[in-house]
Amino acid sequence: MSGFRLYWRLIGASIRAQMQYRASFWMHSVAHLVDTGLEFLAIWALFARFRQVLGWTLPEVAFFYGTINIAFSIADAFNRGFDLFGQKVRSGDFDLILIRPRSTALQIAAQELRLMRVGRLSQSCVVFGWASWKLNVLWSPEWCLLLLWTLLGTVALFYALFVLQATLAFWTTETLEVVNAVTYGGVEAGQYPIALYRPWLREFLTYGVPIACVNYYPILALLGKPDPLGAPLWVGWLSPLAGMAFLGVALFAWELGVRHYRSTGS
């Protein structure tokens, strides 16, 4: 069985396992829906008071909010294995992964698909739908292609952050909460156009953790809005590549981590 098919086979098994805890599934889904609903309510409240922010309207910001949250909830749903990875290293259960004739990253990634993230996903889809309707977007084939490309880049970027955080567990037993600040802070930051932020943060979000590349620039292209910061529109077609590149780097770091683990046995 190919790696790809095996991945979905394992994911399917994890879904069947979760189905044994139906009550818990519904409760957590609703909770996620509420959590993210509140975030959007906060954005709405600011617009109710101020009407616009530096020329950006509520539907435009809602478009940002919707796309980044759709991508994040997808990445997060597939993240369980890496999320719990620190525990696996500390308990020695990672050895059980190493005794199987398959790629370690594949086995960890396929550990579980968290269905309950559907709460966040559906909420952000609703916001996205409302924003697209308000903004009269075109839904032309190339527009849809760019949208898909944007979402893919964002998912890849967030997934890369999860992989990197898990990789740190090979070197330190501390859980590094700071990485969460980057991941969750990144989602929060991506809910608004980066044009709102101070220059240092804009630069960090473009060249450090390239959330702007998978979010701000392609969304400008999707909305056909000229960049108040001056970047040409074609940048948005190119920049989601940064997410893929980041994932590549993260997977490379992962392999280094596995090598380190196997030579130190820590």
Binding site: L6, R9, L10, A13, L96, P101
Partner: peptide, 26 residues
């Protein structure tokens, strides 16, 4: 086999673990 660990899937019936291992080991 590690005596203190299981490589079976905790929440799944045993037979499903066997089938997953069949696929993992080709």
């Amino acid at each position: 086999v590690f005596g203190q660990r299981t490589q079976l899937w905790w929440d799944l019936p045993v037979i499903e673990s066997f089938e997953l291992l069949r696929d993992i080991y080709r």
